[in-house]
Structures are given as C-alpha cells and as structure tokens.
C-alpha cells in the first residue's frame, strides 16, 4: 500500500519536475515579453530529440554510459540557442501588435517545428534505450524508484532555486522584473530592451529544451510530444497564475501529482480532471493562485 502510494507520488513529482522547467520557460517569456508562447512545447520536443542524438553520438564514440547525462544536458541546453534565432528572426516584429497576432505567430512556430522534427528525425519514436538504469534503482519505503528520476527531480529543484536567485539577487534579475512591470520606464532608465528580450526568450527556450532532454531517458521521443505537452504546461501556468514563477512551481506539482493519481485510480479522468480544474481556476480566480490582478 505505502509502496504503491510512493510510486504514484514519485511518478507525479518526476512529471512535475519536467513540467516545471517548461512552464518556467513559458512564464519568464510571458512575464517580460507578454507573449504566450505556444511553441514552448515544441522547444521541449526539440530538446528531447537533440538529447537522444547527443547521447547516441556520445556512446557511439566510446563515452562511458554512466556519464550519458552530461551530453544529454549539454545537447538540451545548446539547442536552446535556437531561441536567439526565433526572437531576432520572428518575434521582434510583433511586440507592438495585438496579442492575437503574437499568439498566432507562436502557433506558426509550432507548425514549423513539428515538421522540422519529422524531417530531421523521422516519424518513428526514438529513445536512449535503457541507459538510465545505469544509475540503478533506489528503494523508498518499499517502492523502487529509478535513481535517474531522483536526479532529474533534484536538478529541477536546483534550477527553480537558481531562477529564484537570478530574479531576486542579480542585476539581470532586477532588470527582468523592472521590464516585466513597466517596459517604458525601464527603457527610459537606459535598459536596452532588445538585449533583454533576446536573453529572456533564450532563457525561456533553454528551460524548455532542457526539460525535453531530461525527460527523454525515461520515455521515448515522438513528434507529437510537443503539442501534447503545451496543453499541460498551459494548465500549469493557468493554475499557478500567468507570469509567476512560484505559480509555475505549485502548478506543476498540482498537475503532475493529480495526473499520476488519476491514471492509477480512474484512467478515463486523467487529463479531463486537469482541464476541469483549469476551468474552475480561470472562472474563480483568473489570475491563478499566485498571479497578480487579472489582465
């Protein structure tokens, strides 16, 4: 009984750890650029595929399998640099446009990235095989949990703390918060917003691609994974509140654990339950649990 419970809980927390990374990317971009980036799920898929390729290259060239997490994370972070191209090449044209157009531009990105992934990696699922079992299994209260999952949970927590530190203690963090609050004022005080936007968007992209890379040893990469994840990340930010990092953290835990519980108790309810909660939150408190006043 306890073993079962721990299994469900750990599965949920692992999923939440990944969801947090993607949702945090969504939040930081929404907070500063006021763009709801539908493509964050596509970046997640891109990171996943790149992670598989990076690990494949690493082991094919004699890298020790136990160190596969290094090329995995590096590959995930490196492909996040695509954010620079996307921001400079597309998004910078629409900052002063209606948000409908911004949303549709990110939808255009979703379409393009989905087929770019199919062109590059094909349509069959790809995976890293059982590499993650290299780290062995841990026994927690009678349940067996792969150590890899624990590493990912720890990494996600560390990143959450890192983002908290970045936002509250560094100069760049202060600039981000100022820009999120009042763009004109920040600009008037001498902040080069172009530079801020590039860095913030790339940060957001990297969080998504890293999330995708980290999840992949435990599952397989499929071309639809991006458009499926975006609706979950969307649920996370709505529950937590748009633009709030603390909201992304709590929202990810709520969605991750609820989904895990629903799957084991009543599978039909899986995502249905989460969307119903999303609707309830939107109606009852549109700003989310941690958001500022509703827009």
């Amino acid at each position: 009984m306890t073993a079962n419970l721990v299994n469900i809980l750990m599965g949920g927390v692992f999923h939440a750890a990944i969801l947090f990374l993607v949702a945090a990317g969504l939040q930081v971009v929404f907070g500063v650029q006021k763009i709801f980036n539908l493509a964050c799920g596509s970046f997640y898929a891109l990171g996943a595929y790149t992670g598989v390729s990076a690990v494949g290259y690493f082991t094919a060239h004699g890298g020790p399998p136990a160190l596969f997490i290094i090329p995995l994370a590096l590959g995930g972070l490196a492909v996040g640099l695509v954010g620079v191209v996307v921001e400079r090449g597309l998004l910078r044209f629409v900052y002063d446009r209606d948000e409908t157009f911004q949303l549709l531009l990110t939808f255009a990105l979703v379409l393009m990235l989905e087929d770019l992934i199919r062109m590059t990696w094909g349509t069959a699922p790809v995976s890293t095989g059982g590499l993650y079992l290299n780290y062995g299994q841990a026994r927690i209260l009678g349940a067996t949990v792969p150590v890899y999952n624990l590493i990912v949970i720890a990494a996600s927590l560390a990143i959450a703390l890192g983002i908290g530190w970045l936002l509250s203690r560094t100069v760049f963090g202060r600039i981000i918060r100022a820009a999120a609050d009042n763009r004109e004022m920040a600009e008037a005080l001498g902040v080069d917003m172009r530079w801020v936007y590039v860095r913030v968007f790339t940060l957001g992209t990297m969080l998504g691609t890293l999330g995708g890379a980290l999840v992949i040893p435990a599952t397989a990469a499929m071309s639809e994974m991006g458009i499926e994840l975006i609706v979950e990340a969307f649920a996370v930010v709505v529950i937590g509140g748009l633009g709030s990092m603390r909201g992304a953290f709590v929202g990810a835990l709520v969605v991750g654990i609820l989904r895990s519980v629903a799957i084991s108790v009543y599978p039909e309810l899986e995502m249905l339950l989460i969307y119903l909660i999303v609707i309830a939150v939107l109606l009852w408190r549109p700003s989310g649990l941690f958001g500022a006043a509703a827009a």
Binding site: L242, P267, E268, L269, M271, Y275, I279, A294
Partner: peptide
C-alpha cells in the same frame, strides 16, 4: 488571452472526453 485560454481548455475537455 483569457478568452483564448478558456475556450482552449473547454475544447480540450471535450477532446479528452471523446478520447477516453
């Protein structure tokens, strides 16, 4: 954006209902 998100959520409720 809130209208867009709410309609998206309702659409996905129906989608998951059909699927599950």
């Amino acid at each position: 954006i809130y209208f867009g998100m709410l309609t998206l959520a309702f659409g996905m409720v129906f989608y998951t209902f059909l699927l599950k």
